[in-house]
Write a protein that binds this DNA or RNA. Structure first.
Length: 595
RNA sequence: CGGGAUGUAGCGCAGCUUGGUAGCGCACUUCGCUUGGGACGAAGGGGUCGCACGUUCGAAUCGUGUCAUCCCGACCA
């Protein structure tokens, strides 16, 4: 029988490296591609449970909690209120918003024992809107901003990059309820400022870029991107050095540099163009620039056939095209579908020879033609005419081909095109999206009948906004932004521990005494510190310290007989031999400056 | 969804072609030795070889199926 002596003075626990739950690996895991994934597994922060799902081990959890706390502090400071919503959600609410049908396979659906359909929450607009309509009845209660920090589940087609694109991940999601668009815009700005502070405190440089609003819906949205040179950045970000313009490639616009768009052909005719399946081949065969060709691409948007016309040297941005059509799911048509489409419409053509003329319907839907702005002023151009191994040349809108009713900007911007704001050339870089903010308007409140009673006695739907931050992705992005060949260089604010004290020889009494003294001093002053008490050679301890990424390292070695310790800063690698109390003071000061 | 590959100890891998009852490095345990950048020596512990069925006297190895994991493509007429 264990006897507890409750009167005994409680000693504070000493965090020893020998007891820290971490196993560093000598090699990188074979299934990791990007830096953050490799480092976090090797340094003992995470372990994969199944595809796209990870265990957050104690070191990782400390990092995540630190990011959460920064987010929490700044959200609270911005006036938002924290709550927690369920992870499992009923189908009914998703039917109300209309997203049960639309969301697709990413929505993880399941049934309970009564065969009722449920889903794992990928986001919480439906739930929060239901909460709001129950609780927010009067204009007197508005505006309100509610948020939570919670695990989300999205059944990604292809999870990858470790924590950067997992299926289960931790997210902060906030939702605002306003009476007016002006109110929403004010809160949107408030959140943008809070986000800027949050990422800055996490030690991350982010760029706020214009973005498409995607499946979440709404009109205006921005993303916060961590700019990175590594492959981990899944987004192309276009930006301008001369002004503040920046946008995700799915939303970026530009002024086109001048190009020759008037052709040399003087009359419309049909010419043989055998085996010219690509623009490149066609240009080579006819000896013309790609700017003289009207390219026709076949897409399937929400099962409906859509032809996209664009100048031959340019590419279609699918998100823009999808939005121009008003759809939610887009993919390029397969060669087989194109063949079928030709059959249905009485043509004999294949990939490479498609054009808008004469195509009527496919799959039971009329064929919609959408033209990019680049083609509308073209003259005497070359275009597919739905005949194999033939193209029309010298064609013009009206006379030879009907100009589509829908003309939109569906073009993928390229680096070097001109900034829409100031006209200087745009640059491109890769970015990791760590946060986003949306102006939703009444996208959810209207269909879900989430209304309040205004001062005039009338009921009106809330004007909503939503604001997300990927907590676990932010941690991974921090690694992508702060590492070297030896391991992670955590920013102090989100490091699992602030410092490590390493006695080189655990058998040396003086070294151990000084090391313990430094440990106690640091701890007493609020520094999170670990002492490496392991009976290992110095090299092992240094390698582990670097790999795990302690921002400060205090090594107590032989020179302690002269009263000196080695102080090393992980971020810049600077080392100095100083007195123990000086080292302690630097660390304590730095930690206190975080606040 | 298409294409490619891989499943053998916690991690990284060999063995498979040519079937004979499993091995290496790291990690782990013990002892010695060593102690400022992943030392060394000795002795140990740990795996029903992803799973199922089949062929065979005998299967990690051959066959079929299945599950899982990873990579590439979802990008252009």
């Amino acid at each position: 029988m264990i006897k507890f002596n409750y009167k005994q003075k409680r000693e504070s626990y000493i965090m020893k490296m020998s007891k820290l739950f971490v196993q560093t690996l000598r090699e990188y895991p074979s299934d990791a591609e990007v830096i953050s994934h490799k480092m976090l597994v090797r340094a003992g922060f995470i372990r994969k449970l199944t595809s796209g799902v990870y265990n957050y081990l104690p070191l990782m959890w400390r990092v995540l909690k630190k990011i959460e706390n920064i987010v929490r502090e700044e959200m609270d400071r911005a006036g938002a209120q924290e709550l927690l919503m369920p992870f499992v959600q009923p189908k009914e609410l998703w039917e109300e918003s209309g997203r049960w049908e639309v969301y697709g396979k990413e929505l993880m659906r399941l049934k309970d024992r009564h065969n009722r359909e449920m889903c794992l929450g990928p986001t919480h607009e439906e739930i929060i809107t239901a909460i709001a309509r129950d609780g927010l009845k009067s204009y007197k209660q508005l505006p309100v901003n509610l948020y939570q920090i919670q695990s989300k589940f999205r059944d990604e087609v292809r999870p990858r990059f470790g924590l950067l694109r997992g299926r289960e991940f931790i997210m902060k999601d906030a939702y605002s309820f306003d009476m007016t668009q002006e109110g929403l815009e004010k809160e949107y700005e408030n959140m943008a400022q809070a986000y800027t502070r949050i990422f800055k405190r996490c030690g991350l440089n982010t760029k706020m870029v214009q973005s498409d609003s995607g499946a979440i819906g709404g009109s205006v949205s921005h993303e916060f991107m961590v700019i990175t040179d590594t492959d981990a950045g899944e987004n192309d970000v276009f930006y301008c050095d001369s002004c503040d313009y920046s946008a995700n490639s799915n939303h970026a616009i530009s002024k086109l540099p001048d190009a020759k768009i008037v052709g040399d052909y003087t009359k419309a005719e049909i010419v043989d163009t055998p085996e010219t399946h690509s623009i490149e081949e066609l240009c080579g065969f006819l000896n013309i620039p790609a700017t003289l060709i009207v390219k026709t691409l076949v897409y399937i948007i929400d099962k409906k056939p859509v032809l996209a016309l664009i100048r031959g040297d340019k590419a279609v941005e699918e998100t823009k095209l999808m939005n121009a059509f008003g759809g939610t799911d887009i993919r390029i048509a397969t060669a087989g579908e194109i063949e079928e489409m030709m059959g249905v419409n009485g043509f004999e053509a294949e990939k490479g020879f498609i054009g808008p003329n004469g195509l009527k319907e496919y799959n039971g839907y009329p064929i919609t033609v959408i033209a990019d702005e680049t083609v509308k002023d073209m003259k005497n151009f070359v275009i597919g005419i739905n005949q194999k191994d033939k193209h029309g040349v010298g064609y013009n809108w009206g006379a030879d081909v009907k100009l589509p009713e829908t003309i939109a900007d569906i073009r993928l911007v390229e680096a070097g095109e001109l900034c829409p704001q100031c006209g200087k050339p745009l640059k491109v870089t890769r970015g990791i999206e760590v946060g986003n903010i949306f102006q939703l308007g009444t996208k959810y409140s209207a269909p879900m009948n989430a209304v309040y009673t205004d001062i005039d006695g009338k009921t009106k739907p809330y004007i909503m906004g939503c604001y997300g931050i990927g907590i676990s992705r932010t941690a991974a992005a921090a690694v992508e932004a702060h590492y070297d060949e030896h391991g992670i260089k955590w920013p102090l604010a989100i490091a699992p521990y602030h410092a490590i004290v390493i006695p080189v020889s655990t058998k040396d009494e003086l070294q151990m005494k000084v090391a313990n003294d430094i440990y106690e001093t640091l701890k007493k002053h609020g520094v999170e510190v670990v002492i490496d008490d392991r009976d290992e050679r110095a090299g092992v301890k240094f390698k582990d310290a670097d790999l795990i990424g302690f921002p400060y390292r205090i090594t107590v070695g032989k020179s302690i007989t002269e009263g000196l310790v080695e102080f090393k800063v992980r971020e810049n690698g600077e080392t100095s031999n100083i007195k123990p109390e000086e080292a302690a003071e630097i660390v304590v000061t730095a930690v206190h400056e975080l606040k």
